[in-house]
Deep mutational scan, measured.
Amino acid sequence: GLMCLEHEDEKVNMYCVTDDQLICALCKLVGRHRDHQVAALSE
């Protein structure tokens, strides 16, 4: 899978609806997407 741009060791596994961007779990937990609307990726 694709790796996160901000956290190079994390794979992107969710999608930020607010930013129209693929993000990883760390982005959602501690990153700038924590208050955004996110959706899980169905692979």
Rank of each mutant, 00 (worst) to 15 (best):
D20M: 08
L29Y: 08
L5G: 08
L22T: 14
M3G: 07
R32D: 08
L22G: 15
S42H: 12
C24Y: 03
V30I: 07
L22W: 11
D9H: 08
N13F: 15
C16L: 00
V12W: 05
G31H: 11
H33T: 02
T18A: 09
H33K: 03
D35K: 08
E8V: 12
K11N: 11
D9I: 11
V12L: 05
E6L: 07
A40V: 05
A25Y: 04
N13R: 07
L22Q: 15
L41Y: 02
V12S: 03
E8C: 13
V12H: 08
A39H: 09
K28S: 10
K11H: 14
C16A: 02
C27D: 04
H33G: 02
C16M: 01
V17E: 13
E10K: 12
S42G: 12
V38M: 06
C16D: 09
G31M: 02
R32W: 04
Q37D: 13
V30Q: 14
D20T: 05
R32E: 13
Q37N: 06
V17D: 13
V17G: 12
D9R: 11
E43K: 12
L41R: 12
V17Q: 15
Q37Y: 06
N13Y: 07
G31L: 02
A40Q: 12
E8Q: 11
C4D: 03
L29P: 12
V38D: 07
Q21F: 08
E43T: 05
D19S: 03
A40K: 13
R34F: 02
M3V: 07
E6M: 04
K28Q: 15
D9W: 09
E6H: 12
I23R: 05
L2R: 14
V17K: 15
N13P: 02
D19M: 00
M14N: 09
L2P: 06
A39D: 12
A40C: 09
L5F: 07
E8H: 11
V38K: 05
K11C: 13
E10H: 12
Q37S: 11
L5A: 10
L2H: 13
K28V: 03
T18S: 05
Q37M: 04
L5N: 07
V17A: 14
S42K: 13
H33Y: 01
A25D: 08
C4H: 05
A25G: 13
C16E: 06
D19W: 00
Y15D: 11
L26N: 14
L41T: 13
Y15M: 08
A40E: 10
L2W: 03
